[in-house]
Each structure stands twice: as structure tokens, then as C-alpha cells.
Design a protein around this nucleic acid. Structure first.
Length: 554
DNA sequence: CTGGGGATGGGGCCC
DNA sequence: TGGGCCCCATCCCCA
């Protein structure tokens, strides 16, 4: 006895689960997009994936070999057995697919691509290692992709990847398949086309909706919609984690709920003869642009940043129309800052992504508009003036006008005077908070406050805390950070990465310090003693909390 | 019910 | 870039 459609139904279910992010246990990072998937499925698809997912739950793919658009097709293929090539039947696309399939050791898919290319009568591409000029080299991009690597798996991943790449190269020479200039061009052009909003119906829709979640630090332009959280494992996560996961899952939803490509006449299947298996339309597609967030990063970098010669150099003028966060963080700024959140348009469901009329191409970037929806992640609109100068809060209808305006700000204006900062606890300031009270000489003084530092780099880092611009946005929730490290640490909480495990109880932490702190629970060590009552505490912060009890008027 | 303590999460900031 | 330590906030437990 055999159920005729068992395998098909099973796969369909898995694909639907992937679309909702349900039970997804691995995140694949491709260039600046996140994809969620199931380890088992990936491992069953290729040896390469098998080796990667064995120990890691975050996989970084070589962006020279695969780009987000291609990987979306590949992921669809893995979960459906169909090559959804109706709208992407170009030779470049097949070359790109072939490259990626070979890289990922998806032999069946590679064979399909080869077959298709042969059928088109085009010779297989020849080896070419020079990346397309329009496409930054991998090494350039690597440094700009804020991917959080598991502390314990990152190096392993790299090692594995190196090994696999070596194998891959060998295989390539055997199979006479490799990345070509034209192929790279294909990747590049495909990406470029995809990034142009509405420039080419089908492809742009794929590019806009199906590329997953933008993780690019550069984030030239991001349109974000949010998807309701699926009834999945995220419910057990913290709100932020749930948001992140839903964002990721939404990218899948978009990528999988792609009926037009399934129904294309040129779709290819690995087993053939299958009827169209469009995923049920869950209704998410029609609202992809319903709630959108637009981030516009201007061409010109922050004048002050440039003048300081800061190595990061990608600080925007402060025109990030950020999300309305549901938590107290409120767009990443405290309420006294000029980073307003206007909720009216959000509540009205106003489509601010279309409203702007500015594609990312205008800002000189080529990244696609990544679209996802996420519960509790509402877009923020500034009426018709989407481009907001953070220092003064003025809105402008275009990035050009904003840039022109920003140049009128002087360096001094980019600072905020933090009068409040000295009203804080004097004792704290005198002891630990204010480094200028240390013994070592600190010749580098902050021009805004009285703090001084031993080296200029630290001073520069400190001076950023006076700016209103926050150069490092979380591309999952949109929250802005002054330091990259803080942002990456924040991202770790989104991704649920807790590399630091307690050997005693198995509890896991995102930070080493937390683990150290936690270990005192097991050791019973209470190194912090109240000088007033003699009470002992495992954590300093609890001692401080306790001291407040002593000093509070009540 | 309330307040205090234990424990944890997340962000800011300095090194 | 990551570690470390600061802060605040929060939850839970218990007296």
C-alpha cells in the first residue's frame, strides 16, 4: 500500500512551514538577505548544506557564488522540486543558478540548469574570476555585512567553507562549470533589475518581495512591510526575538508564495509531470506594500564624519525613517530627541514606500527593496516629506533636498548638548562613569562634555554619543545604535544566538559577562557588600539597587 | 498586597 | 571587534 501523493504533500507542508517560519532552525545569510529554513531539508538536499547545518544555525553563503535572488529560487527548488524559471528564463539566470547550484552541491539542480543552457544552444560559460565591476568584491562586502556569527561556529564555518570551496573548484574543473564574467554580469544585472522597483514587472516583484531580509549595514534603501507573527515557535521567544523571526519568516512567505513563477510555462521540475503546486495564497502578497518602511540613505556621507576622517564613513545624514517600535525604545531614540515617530499615517495604512517616488537607484545604491512584515513593526511616515534631517527634524520630499539641507548644518549643530547628562548620579560620575577621573593621563578631551580619553579613537567613539545620528541600524527592527558592537550584540538577541552556556544548569547567555555573573548563582559567591548594612550580593547591579533602598527618601 | 532581594535582558559606553 | 562593566527595567519569589 502506498499513498500516491505522500511525498508531495509532505513537501508541500514543509514548504508552508518554511513560509511561516515554523520550526525553521537555520538562518542562511546571502549577501544582505536572511532566509530561514529547516536543517533537515537542507541537509537532505546537498552534502554541502549537510556539513554546514550540522553544527551551525547561521550559515553565511559566499556572495560571489550566489546572490539573494538566485538563492531564493534555489530554496524554492529545494522545497518544491521545481525550478521556477518562468520569469527568469534568461541565460544569465541559468548561469547564475548553475553557479550557485554547483557551489551548493545541488547536483540535480545543476544538471537541470546545464540541460536548460544546452537546450538554449549556448555554450557553457567559461571560467572567469574577475567580478563584475558593478558588483563589489566579496571581501569588500564581507566587512560590511553585519552577520552575527556563532562564536563557536564561525571559524568552523569558515574552515568548512574553505574546504568545500576547494572541493567545489575541483568539481568545477571536472565539470567545466564555473562562474563567468557574463555570469557575474547576470547576477549583477539580475540584482540590479530586481532592485529597481517596478522596473520590470515580474522580476522586480521577485526582487522586491522575495529576497529575504536585508542585513546590509549599508542599507541603502529598505522598504519594509510587516507580517503577522505566525503561530510558531516564536511565541516562546522574547518579543524581540519573535519580531526577528517573523521578519525572517516573512521573507520566506514572500519568497514561497510566489504563484506566478510556479505557474510559469517554463518551470522545470526535478521529477517532472507535476501539476502546478502553487502555495495557497495566504493573502500576504497583496499587502506587501501595504505597510512599508522606507529607509533612504543619502549619497553624501555625513559631512562631519568625513571631515573627521572616520574609518566607518557610512554614517548617513540622519534620514532614516525608522520603524515605530512597540517597546519603550521608541525608534531608538529617547523622546527628547528629534527622531519623531508619526503614527497617523501608519494607522491609516498609508503606503509610504510608493509615496516617496524615490527608488534606491536614486541614492546611488543597488540593493533591492527588501520587504517584510512583522507584528509590532509599524512603519513611520512623515507625511509627504519622507526624508527627515535628524538634527533639526525638518522633512524633505527628496533625498537631494535633504542632502542640500544637511550641508547647511555646521559641525557644532551636529552635536547635542546633553545638559541632563550631568544631573545624573554624582557619585557614579566621580567613580567609574567618568573616565577622566582616572590616574592615567588623558590628553584627548571631548569638546562637548568634560570627559577625556587616553587615545583619539576612544575620544572619537565617545564623541559619537553626542550626535543625533546613529550610524548602525538594526535591519531587523530598525533600531539605531551608536556603536557597531552594540548593534551586533542586539542582533544576536534577534537571532537567538546564545553562545555562552552554563555548564552547571545549561542556561545560555548572549554575553560572556552574563555567564560569569550567572555562575555566582551556583558558586554562591557574593562579592558585593553593602557598606551600610553589610548585605552581600552576587551582582553589583543588585547592590546598587539595594543602595537605592538605603538612600531613597521613602 | 507590598517591599526587598535574586536573577535576567537589553542598551550605553569605555577599553 | 569583542570584552567588560555600567545603567535601567523587569520578572519572580518570598517574607
Amino acid at each position: 500500500m502506498e499513498l500516491p501523493n505522500h511525498a508531495k504533500q509532505l513537501l508541500l507542508q514543509l514548504n508552508q512551514q518554511r513560509a511561516k517560519g515554523f520550526l525553521c532552525d537555520v538562518i542562511i545569510v546571502v549577501e544582505n538577505a536572511l532566509f530561514r529554513a529547516h536543517k533537515n531539508i537542507l541537509a537532505a538536499s546537498s552534502i554541502y548544506f549537510k556539513s554546514l547545518v550540522l553544527h551551525d544555525n547561521l550559515i553565511n553563503l559566499d556572495t560571489d557564488m550566489v546572490n539573494p535572488s538566485v538563492f531564493r529560487q534555489i530554496l524554492d527548488f529545494i522545497y518544491t522540486g521545481k525550478l521556477l524559471s518562468a520569469d527568469q528564463a534568461s541565460e544569465q539566470n541559468f548561469n547564475a543558478l548553475l553557479t550557485a547550484a554547483s557551489y551548493l552541491q545541488l547536483h540535480d539542480l545543476a544538471a537541470l540548469c546545464r540541460k536548460k543552457i544546452k537546450r538554449n544552444g549556448k555554450p557553457l560559460p567559461t571560467k572567469h574570476t574577475t567580478p563584475h565591476p558593478g558588483r563589489p568584491h566579496r571581501n569588500q562586502r564581507l566587512s560590511s555585512t553585519p552577520v552575527i556569527q556563532n562564536r563557536y561556529s564561525g571559524s568552523k564555518d569558515i574552515e568548512k567553507k574553505k574546504i568545500t570551496e576547494e572541493l567545489f573548484k575541483d568539481r568545477l574543473s571536472d565539470d567545466e562549470v564555473y562562474v563567468t564574467g557574463s555570469n557575474q554580469e547576470g547576477l549583477s544585472s539580475l540584482h540590479g533589475v530586481a532592485s529597481k522597483h517596478g522596473s520590470n514587472g515580474n522580476i522586480s516583484s521577485i526582487g522586491d518581495q522575495g529576497l529575504g531580509l536585508d542585513l546590509s549595514k549599508k542599507s541603502p534603501s529598505v522598504s519594509v512591510t510587516h507580517e503577522e507573527v505566525s503561530p510558531n515557535e516564536n511565541q516562546q521567544e522574547s518579543p524581540q526575538s519573535a519580531s526577528a523571526s517573523s521578519a525572517n519568516s516573512a521573507s520566506f512567505e514572500d519568497s514561497t508564495a510566489n504563484p506566478q513563477s510556479v505557474e510559469g510555462g517554463d518551470s522545470m521540475e526535478i521529477d517532472g509531470g507535476d501539476e502546478n503546486q502553487s502555495l495557497p495564497d495566504t493573502g500576504q502578497r497583496k499587502s506587501l506594500h501595504h505597510l512599508a518602511m522606507k529607509k533612504e540613505w543619502p549619497k553624501k556621507e555625513n559631512a562631519y564624519e568625513n571631515s573627521k576622517g572616520d574609518e566607518e564613513g557610512t554614517i548617513p545624514n540622519g534620514v532614516i525613517v525608522g520603524p515605530k517600535l512597540t517597546d519603550k525604545s521608541n525608534c531608538g531614540y529617547s523622546s527628547e530627541h528629534s527622531f519623531q515617530c508619526k503614527e497617523d499615517d501608519v494607522e491609516n495604512g498609508k503606503d509610504i514606500s510608493d509615496e516617496s517616488g524615490h527608488s534606491e537607484s536614486e541614492s546611488g545604491h543597488t540593493s533591492a527593496n527588501y520587504v517584510y512584515r512583522q507584528e509590532g513593526f509599524e512603519p513611520v511616515a512623515y507625511g509627504d516629506n519622507l526624508y527627515v534631517c535628524i538634527p533639526c527634524g525638518k522633512g524633505f520630499p527628496s533625498s537631494e533636498q535633504l542632502n542640500a539641507h544637511v550641508e547647511t548644518h555646521t559641525e557644532e549643530e551636529l552635536y547635542i548638548k546633553e545638559e541632563d547628562s550631568y544631573i545624573k548620579d554624582e557619585a557614579e560620575d566621580l567613580s567609574t562613569q567618568n573616565p577622566s577621573f582616572g590616574n592615567e593621563p588623558r590628553p584627548f578631551k571631548c569638546s562637548v562634555c568634560e570627559k577625556s580619553y587616553k587615545d583619539p579613537a576612544t575620544l572619537r567613539q565617545h564623541e559619537k554619543t553626542h550626535w543625533l545620528t546613529r550610524p548602525f541600524p538594526c535591519n531587523i527592527c530598525g533600531k539605531m545604535f551608536t556603536q557597531r558592537g552594540t548593534m551586533t550584540r542586539h542582533m544576536r538577541s534577534h537571532l537567538g544566538l546564545k553562545p555562552f552556556a552554563c555548564e552547571e544548569c545549561g542556561m545560555r547567555f548572549t554575553r560572556q559577562y552574563r555567564l560569569t555573573e550567572h555562575m555566582r548563582v551556583h558558586s554562591g559567591e557574593k562579592p558585593y557588600e553593602c557598606q551600610l548594612c553589610g548585605g552581600k550580593f552576587t551582582q553589583q547591579r543588585n547592590l546598587i539597587s539595594h543602595l537605592r533602598m538605603h538612600t531613597s527618601p521613602s
